[in-house]
């Protein structure tokens, strides 16, 4: 699935990373707990989170993730956006809640894979 399709399925706003929006991603995970993302996530390229702080971007950076979707309409501040730009990570924002966002993407073919 292209990141641009994620944007359209989730009716999301693009916050930054327009140049990478046609990149292809295959898996995603959803979590507000960065500890769990670092512990259990393996090859996921998209992180859905309702948590808004720089550590969400840093976690994605360490995990080689390509895109972060902020759910529940959460808006990251300028510092967070700047951090994502430097790391070439696409930021999206959707008004949908976590469960709905994950469900919509899963239904449209994006796979999970979180697990021990």
């Amino acid at each position: 699935m292209k990141i641009s399709e994620i944007k359209s399925i989730l009716e999301a706003d693009l916050i930054c990373g327009e140049e990478f929006i046609e990149n292809e991603v295959f898996t995603a995970c959803g979590s507000d707990m960065m500890s769990d993302v670092l512990a259990y996530v393996k090859e996921q390229a998209v992180l859905l989170s309702g948590l808004v702080n720089p550590q969400v971007v840093r976690t994605a950076e360490m995990m080689d993730m390509k895109c972060i979707v902020f759910v529940r309409g959460k808006q990251p501040d300028e510092d967070i956006v700047e951090l994502a730009k430097e790391r070439e990570i696409v930021l999206l924002r959707t008004k949908f809640e976590m469960f709905t966002s994950c469900g919509l993407l899963y239904k449209n073919g994006l796979k999970g894979g979180c697990g021990v």
Binding site: D32, M33, M34, S35, D36, L38, A39, S49, L51, N53, Q55, V56, T59
Partner: peptide, 12 residues
């Protein structure tokens, strides 16, 4: 609240 402190750091 910042997304850490799940007791996974050292094991991880």
């Amino acid at each position: 609240q910042l997304g850490f402190g799940a007791g996974m750091g050292l094991p991880n």
